[in-house]
Amino acid sequence: MTAVTDLPAALGARLLPAATAAAEVLPAPTPLVAGEPAAGDVAGCAGFAGASVADLHLPGSPRIAVLVGADLVAALAESPMGGLDLAAATQPALDAAAAALGVGCGAAREVALDAVPADLGNAFTLVPLVGDAAPAGAFLVSDGAAAAIDAVRGSDTSAPGSPAVSTPVAARGIEMLHGVDMEVTVELGRARLTVRELLALSPGEVLELDRAAGSPADLLVNGRLIARGEVVVVDEDFGLRVTEIVDETTAG
């Protein structure tokens, strides 16, 4: 595998800070530290359990990616809120890495592990993210990103100051998901309509919902009912005053 000194100069100068930024916010069972960058290959992606990729806001939309271990994949799948999205869980890490590279990135998307090399253009650099002396994740940068960063930054290859490496408290089990964004929805009620009725809708039409006036609204997280409450107005915006937390027995 190629050592970091053989990587493109501009990328080499920014790679470790970017990987460190990703490591600081990537959910993991233990705090992560960026390891030694090396040329990536299919074998380097083996042993991980999931992957997310995002396009950098650079000409040609080169890509970066993060690989995660089985601990995070299992925690997302077994969350009390239902199966959570790996792309959403890794978006902050990709955003942080892109910012450290001096650019932005698009929305993360989950990809199959064996598709990662092709998705990155089959030429990429891999930085292991190590926790408890074992790789718990990885940060990947396509060689297309290296060329694009060099083109945008010009010949400036000076390395930025080394960022302070934080030492967050180890997060285990569900605690590692504390920073994961989830979609929260308030539902007033539901109605069933035929296609004909849907096509016949017009402005001013009133739909009758399956809930009586004054009944509590449902609070759903990623589509799962977790609470009920009263709709209120807060600074001219709607809000929900929670009146009941729903457990699994009553949710059904």
Results as ranks from 00 to 15, higher is better:
residue 219 L to A: 14
residue 238 F to V: 10
residue 143 D to Q: 09
residue 115 A to C: 08
residue 76 L to T: 08
residue 37 P to Q: 12
residue 211 R to G: 03
residue 130 V to C: 02
residue 173 G to F: 05
residue 177 L to V: 08
residue 44 G to Q: 11
residue 118 A to T: 05
residue 128 P to V: 13
residue 52 S to P: 05
residue 141 V to R: 00
residue 42 V to H: 01
residue 224 R to N: 12
residue 229 G to D: 09
residue 144 G to W: 07
residue 14 R to F: 01
residue 90 T to H: 08
residue 250 T to W: 00
residue 151 A to W: 11
residue 139 F to L: 08
residue 6 D to Y: 03
residue 27 P to N: 06
residue 68 V to Q: 07
residue 132 D to T: 00
residue 187 E to R: 12
residue 223 G to A: 13
residue 90 T to M: 06
residue 234 V to E: 09
residue 245 I to L: 14
residue 159 A to C: 09
residue 129 L to I: 05
residue 55 D to M: 03
residue 39 A to V: 05
residue 53 V to S: 06
residue 142 S to C: 05
residue 160 P to M: 14
residue 15 L to K: 12
residue 63 R to S: 12
residue 9 A to G: 01
residue 188 L to A: 14
residue 242 V to E: 01
residue 195 V to R: 15
residue 101 L to S: 04
residue 180 V to K: 07
residue 225 L to T: 01
residue 202 S to W: 00
residue 37 P to A: 14
residue 92 P to C: 09
residue 151 A to G: 02
residue 39 A to P: 02
residue 68 V to W: 04
residue 170 A to I: 12
residue 95 D to Q: 13
residue 5 T to Y: 04
residue 104 G to V: 00
residue 143 D to A: 14
residue 175 E to K: 14
residue 46 A to K: 14
residue 137 G to M: 05
residue 150 D to N: 04
residue 101 L to G: 02
residue 34 A to I: 09
residue 134 A to C: 03
residue 45 C to D: 07
residue 239 G to P: 01
residue 110 E to S: 15
residue 23 A to G: 11
residue 24 E to T: 15
residue 246 V to Q: 05
residue 102 G to I: 04
residue 208 E to W: 00
residue 40 G to I: 07
residue 94 L to F: 01
residue 153 R to L: 10
residue 59 P to D: 12
residue 50 G to W: 02
residue 32 L to Q: 06
residue 131 G to A: 10
residue 129 L to F: 06
residue 143 D to L: 10
residue 237 D to T: 13
residue 48 F to A: 10
residue 207 L to W: 05
residue 177 L to Y: 04
residue 91 Q to G: 01
residue 190 R to S: 11
residue 136 A to V: 02
residue 88 A to N: 10
residue 26 L to R: 12
residue 190 R to D: 01
residue 180 V to D: 04
residue 61 S to A: 15
residue 107 A to E: 12
residue 17 P to F: 08
residue 187 E to I: 13
residue 229 G to W: 02
